[in-house]
Write a protein that binds this DNA or RNA. Sequence first.
DNA 1: GCGCTGATTCCCT
DNA 2: GGGAATCAGCGCG
Length: 198
Amino acid sequence: MTIFDAGPALEESFFQHKAPTIARGLIGATLLINGVGGRIVETEAYDISDPASHSFGGQKRRNAVMFGPPGHAYIYRIYGLHWCLNAVAGEAGSAVLIRALEPLEGIGQMVVRRGISDPRLLCSGPGRLCQALGIDGSLNGAPLGDAPFQLFAPGGESPITEGRRIGIRVGVDTPWRFGLSNSPFLSRPFAAEGFAAG
DNA sequence: GCGCTGATTCCCT
DNA sequence: GGGAATCAGCGCG
């Protein structure tokens, strides 16, 4: 019943890699929650040595899921009102933030949840994506390989652009943001980098 | 099209 | 009590 262009279900072992490897490998993968979702076009990696990461400074109650088994969902509330979805990676305290996807399945339901119809604005940002897919804190710690999640490997080669991460105040020079090159569904375009004068 | 600002909850200090 | 991996609406030009 695959009516979208996707590969086989992602192996659980995929998540035993380091966060940047997983972040890159998830570009082009298909993510569904209760049958609603699409193709991942933007991710960011975080790990325990990274001052921008919730795991920086060690395990706490809030970030405990980041220190748990790989391939599970780490979901937290940001700025008091939005939810953000991460995939826990192989190293303790590392995860991949899912920032944007291209809506493919259940678009009607996304439109209802978001209250807008422009497909480019349905899932282009971590908060928007969670609202469109109906994700909240009740799914924190849930395995991404089981219902209500479905994850499929990329259908083919995806041209990937790298850059600096967004919305953080420290660790801004770490180029751990990955995106499907020139996708109209990115939360923000990738800036032309490498021209910083002094 | 840009930038500023308010919204709102949880966790750590 | 303050800040946070964000979003949408507003005013301005």
